[in-house]
Simulated assay, not measured.
Amino acid sequence: MKKLMSLIFMAVLLTSCEEVVDVDLPGVDSKLVVDGLLRVKKEVEFIDVRIGLKASTDFFEENLPVQAESVMISYGKPNSEGNFDNLSSSSLVEETSGSGIYVPDPDSLSDQRIPTSIAEPGTVFMLEIHYQDKYYFAQTEYVSTVPLDNLEQGDEVFFDEEQTEIIVTFTDNGEEDNFYLFDFMSGEFQTVEDEFFQGQQFEFSFFYDDETDPGDVVTVSILGATKEFYNYMDLVLQQTGNGNNGGPFQTPVATVRGNVFDLTGLENVTNLDNVERPNDYALGYFAVAQEYSRTIIIE
């Protein structure tokens, strides 16, 4: 009898351990999510303009593409007084219905593509979005960068033997303080600043987990970044980590604000950082950066 009771007790215990516990998580207000990183490749004629718009959802749910009433990018060089003598613009439309990806309008009477030639230091880009009767605005300056000197596969490991080491080498521009964003594919990013190697060649290692196999082609890109974009990406990567299935623009952190501001109903805004609307803002970031890439075949 004691043996039977013990078996019954163990069966009840195991069954109770398998019960699913539903946890009520606090609801969050949906926010516009802007994936606005424009990569400038100087060897092509036009900038590959693709602005992704999504709406944030509750915890553990994927952000959903949304349709905006209008999306436009303006660009030009401000004069000494901060005004624009000549300002050009590009009207964007949804690439395919329901995609949430906005590209230069191919059906416009005039060419809405943005020439790569206008992307140079001092050029300012402005993004305007009208979505659900709200007006969102972002402003950024184009940032150039330096090419990669070399990529090679190393044989060191960081945590376990399944990792693959890639050694990245580049030479910093010593004439200014520089900030860099490295893209290692599959949502893997790394931020680097030149505080300790100003004007020098710099080498560092990046470790892939067991996702790479011999024969795989890996592309590594270096992008320029403003100090503000560098700080934003650094905070996002700290909170989300790398390898999050699509990168930090797919899962932006609510506590890390980007540079897309809700200016609905406001006039004569001179300092975007002083927009006192603690609960009204978009997630994500708008940046325009030069990009260089190199590839390596995993051995």
Results as ranks from 00 to 15, higher is better:
2 K>V: 14
5 M>Q: 14
6 S>P: 00
6 S>E: 15
13 L>G: 13
14 L>S: 12
15 T>G: 15
15 T>I: 11
20 V>G: 02
21 V>Q: 05
30 S>M: 05
38 L>F: 11
38 L>P: 00
39 R>A: 07
40 V>N: 09
40 V>G: 02
41 K>G: 03
43 E>N: 14
46 F>Q: 10
49 V>A: 10
52 G>K: 01
56 S>A: 14
58 D>P: 00
60 F>P: 00
60 F>L: 11
62 E>V: 13
65 P>Q: 04
73 I>R: 02
79 N>F: 10
80 S>Q: 11
82 G>L: 11
89 S>Q: 10
90 S>L: 00
94 E>N: 12
95 E>H: 10
97 S>M: 04
110 S>D: 10
118 I>Q: 09
125 F>G: 00
126 M>V: 00
127 L>V: 04
130 H>A: 07
133 D>H: 02
137 F>V: 04
143 V>E: 03
143 V>Q: 13
147 P>I: 03
152 E>W: 10
153 Q>I: 12
157 V>M: 06
161 E>Q: 12
167 I>K: 09
186 S>P: 09
195 E>V: 04
196 F>M: 11
197 F>C: 12
199 G>P: 12
200 Q>F: 01
210 D>V: 00
211 E>I: 15
212 T>E: 00
216 D>I: 08
217 V>Q: 14
223 L>W: 03
226 T>F: 13
229 F>Q: 04
230 Y>W: 12
231 N>D: 14
234 D>L: 15
238 Q>R: 11
239 Q>W: 10
240 T>I: 09
240 T>E: 13
241 G>P: 08
243 G>F: 05
245 N>S: 13
247 G>W: 00
249 F>V: 07
253 V>P: 03
255 T>P: 00
256 V>L: 00
262 D>C: 00
265 G>I: 08
265 G>P: 05
266 L>M: 14
269 V>I: 10
272 L>R: 13
273 D>M: 12
279 N>D: 14
281 Y>D: 05
282 A>I: 03
286 F>P: 04
299 E>C: 01
